[in-house]
Every structure is written in structure tokens, then in C-alpha cells.
Design a protein around this nucleic acid. Structure first.
Lengths: 165, 165
DNA sequence: CAGAGCATGTAAGAAGTTACATGATTGT
DNA sequence: ACAATCATGTAACTTCTTACATGCTCTG
């Protein structure tokens, strides 16, 4: 895996998620990603289960069997190394300031190739889609984060609509 | 490759870039991505050269040898199918409204685990990094797009700083 | 007690990364 | 003419996606 001082976003976010919830199964982690409003966090089993194996092999999480019935149930927690790695990842300002992947921004870079009417209709459709965005969990602050993000985006799109007039 | 009605972001953006510039070499496309303020668009040769082969095999671009010396120089243009596929990709509001990958947003979801002082310092570092963001080209509108994006982000971060008081 | 869907995984393949290779061109 | 770097690629490896497999648990 990527060295523990240079975690991928998925690795770092998973450590932070376990850190917040103290103990989680791979399934719970997968579900949290699946409910995310971003398709970047796909929440596929094929991404998460192998990820947990990598994190454990790297010594960043430990796991214990917490089954209460015949079904296996493996619960992950952060190790000390995992705590440190999580903090480094979380406070990495250089990476946090990266522009990331923004499907709307990418399209806006090329929207001048379309007629103004098409561009306006497109932006209004995007605004409409934002009405359906939901947070991946009701953990304190998570809903506020998603709402503040959507508000910011609405204002940004509106400024582009104004510009098209 | 992904079917021409469901292009990846890299495929779609590459079609749109060629559409805007009319004709480009793989190297020019690679450099455009490399100059992008997002590390998502890494601009590695290993991504772009095979990508152009895929797009040509799918009939979305055509290429011609435009060498003026001993060095080979292959120039790509959109085909009719490529034009159509680009428009579908560009005006896809469902994908444009996706939350994508936002390294700052991801960290804000977990920042409550850090002391307030650390959080504040972190956000101020991110603000400082934004002073160095540059556009990938001076194509009309590109600089304006990056600047408006950075402005929007600054306002968003400021609202989080205010909230920490 | 049968069917839905929960929960844990794995296999094959796609797409990207890092690192390297190779020759062409430019600047000094 | 020599070094730097431009420009075009390729190879090995990592990670993720899609699709499937398997058994468990709950509900009507």
C-alpha cells in the first residue's frame, strides 16, 4: 500500500471514520461510503474489504472477532500508528487545498462550446439535482457540512447564470 | 473502454479539450492536465497515451501524422461521433451535480476530532495555499473559472473559521 | 419455511501510477 | 559536441469496478 505517511484519500478517510466511531466493521464502512453524495466514494465491497486488509497489514488498524452468532463479524479499531497517520492525513493542508475532482467545474471549463441556451438549461438542471442531496450519516456536523457545501455550490452556479445574461 | 455514452471524466474532458482547440497531440493534452491545479488530472504519459489509443479505437477521435521533421507528431481531432459524445458528456447534469472528490470537504467531515486551535491553523494554511493556484492554460474563460472557484472556496472556508469561534 | 436482503467476501478485468526507455531537438 | 529537456511511448504494479458466490438472519 501507499506508505503510511502518504495515504490515499480512501485510506485516510477510512482511518478518520473509524477514529470518529471508535469501532466499525468493513460493512459499516462500506455503507457509509455508499450513502455519500459523491460517486467517488462508491462504497463497493471490492474496494473496502481489500482496503481493510491492507490497513491491518500496515499496522494502522487492528481487528477482533465480535460475532454474537454464527455469522462472522470483524470489528476494526485504530492502532496508535493509525491514530498518528490519521492526524497527519487530516491536517495535511497541501492535500486539502488540492482542487480534486469536480465534475461541474470540469464541464464549465468547456461550456463556451455550447449555445448559451443549452448552458443555462444545463446549470438549472444541476441546481435542481442539488435539492436531492443527502448526507451519508446523521453524525453531528455531517448534515451541516453537506448543507453548507450545497449552499456554496448554489451561489457559485447562480453567479455563472448571471454571467450568461 | 467505457461505452461512448458513458465516458469517464478523463475521456469526456479530453474530447472537450480537443473540441475547443480543434487539433492536439497527446503531449499537448498531457501537458494541459499536468498544469491543472488538481492532482486528479495527473497528466502522466502512462494515462494519456493509452487513452488516445482507446478513443481512436472507439472512433471518437481520428489522428494524422503532422511531423515536420524526423520526430513523429500525431495530431488528434474529433470525429462526428466524438462531437456527439462530447456534447452528451458536457451537458450531463446528473454527473455534473455529483459531489466528486473534494479533499478539503472530506477532512472537514472529521475535523471535529481535532482541537479547535489545530483546526483553525489548518484552515488558514489552506487559505494560504489558494494564493498560489494557477489555471492550466490562458484559454478564454479558463482563468476566470479558476479565480471564481478559488473565491467561492475562500468564502466557504471563512464561514467555517467563523463557526469555530 | 421460503424468500428477501444482510453481511462477508473473491475473481477478472479496467484504468491509472511510477518508473523507465529512446530518439529528437535546443541552447551554450 | 555535449547536456538538458522535449516528445513519444511502454512495462510492471496498484487500486478500484463489476459481477458473482456463499451462508446467515429476519419477516410474513
Amino acid at each position: 500500500m501507499s506508505s503510511s505517511t502518504n495515504l490515499t484519500e480512501l485510506e485516510g478517510a477510512t482511518l478518520a471514520l473509524i477514529g470518529r466511531e471508535t469501532a466499525l466493521t468493513a460493512y459499516e464502512i462500506k455503507e457509509w461510503y455508499r450513502r455519500s453524495p459523491s460517486s467517488y466514494w462508491s462504497g463497493s465491497a471490492g474496494a473496502v474489504y481489500p482496503l481493510m486488509k491492507r490497513l491491518e497489514a500496515a499496522g494502522l488498524v487492528s481487528s477482533a472477532d465480535r460475532s454474537t452468532s454464527k455469522r462472522p463479524r470483524r470489528v476494526y479499531r485504530l492502532t496508535q500508528d493509525g491514530q498518528s497517520a490519521m492526524q497527519v492525513w487530516l491536517l495535511d493542508a497541501a492535500r486539502a487545498s488540492d482542487a480534486g475532482l469536480d465534475p461541474l467545474r470540469t464541464r464549465l471549463a468547456f461550456i463556451a462550446q455550447m449555445p448559451v441556451g443549452e448552458a443555462r438549461g444545463f446549470l438549472q438542471q444541476v441546481l435542481a439535482e442539488y435539492d436531492t442531496v443527502t448526507a451519508p450519516s446523521d453524525a453531528p456536523g455531517t448534515i451541516a457540512l453537506v448543507e453548507s457545501w450545497v449552499d456554496m455550490r448554489r451561489a457559485w452556479i447562480q453567479s455563472w447564470l448571471d454571467r450568461l445574461d
